[in-house]
């Protein structure tokens, strides 16, 4: 499995947000600002790459009856490391994301990749899969968070775009706005990807 294929798979074919519709809790909760979406995506990617690698290395060793607890131990260790690193070096971002960093432990994207990919594939392929899926998740979070931040606060990544007089539609930085934006983006992105699929003759 080469890099290009892994990236394409993670970003488009098996995009965790728009195609697999996994990990909805962090997706809806942290995407109030583009910066939070980026941070959450990168944190998840770091954990995902690490857990895919470790689980792939341990795949001959973990008995299948206790594989879920074993995965949890691996993932929780990595999440704790990421959490402590963020607290030490990015305290502001860490407090903005709050509980959702420790909650990466129960993110079903990471479980899904461990169960369906890393436990059956060699380490290098698992790392690439982790990078692809993590990248797809990060891009989806940035897209959703940018839309919500733009409508709800008039800015993207903290940079004001719609001018000082833009009447901020507060609902988009609240929970219901997250659901509306996600639903419409899901429809829009999948429509666009279908179009792309037809135009490229099934290449993408």
């Amino acid at each position: 499995m080469d890099v290009q294929k892994a990236l394409l798979n993670g970003v488009i074919t098996e995009n965790p947000t728009f195609r697999l519709v996994l990990g909805m809790c962090p997706t809806l909760a942290v995407t109030t600002a583009a910066e939070n979406g980026l941070a959450m995506g990168l944190a998840t990617t770091a954990v995902l790459v690490g857990s895919n690698l470790l689980i792939s290395l341990l795949r001959g060793f973990i008995p299948s009856k206790v594989r879920i607890p074993a995965y949890i131990v691996v993932i929780a260790t990595l999440v704790t490391a990421v959490d402590l690193l963020m607290k030490a070096y990015l305290p502001a971002l860490s407090s903005a994301l709050g509980l959702y960093i420790p909650l990466i432990v129960v993110n079903c994207i990471i479980f899904a990749r461990a169960e369906s990919f890393a436990s059956k594939n060699p380490p290098i392929a698992s790392i690439l899969d982790g990078i692809g899926i993590g990248f797809g998740f990060t891009l989806a979070l940035i897209l959703l968070a940018s839309v919500r931040e733009l409508l709800g606060a008039g800015s993207v990544f903290g940079v004001n775009i719609l001018g000082p007089d833009y009447p901020k539609a507060l609902i988009f930085v609240m929970a219901p706005g997250g659901f509306f934006s996600l639903g419409l983006l899901l429809a829009g992105v999948n429509r666009f990807l279908d179009y792309l699929h037809r135009r490229t003759g099934g290449l993408i």
Partner: peptide, 10 residues
Amino acid sequence: AFLLACWPAA
């Protein structure tokens, strides 16, 4: 309800 959540002051 949407408007009330978006622009409560107005």
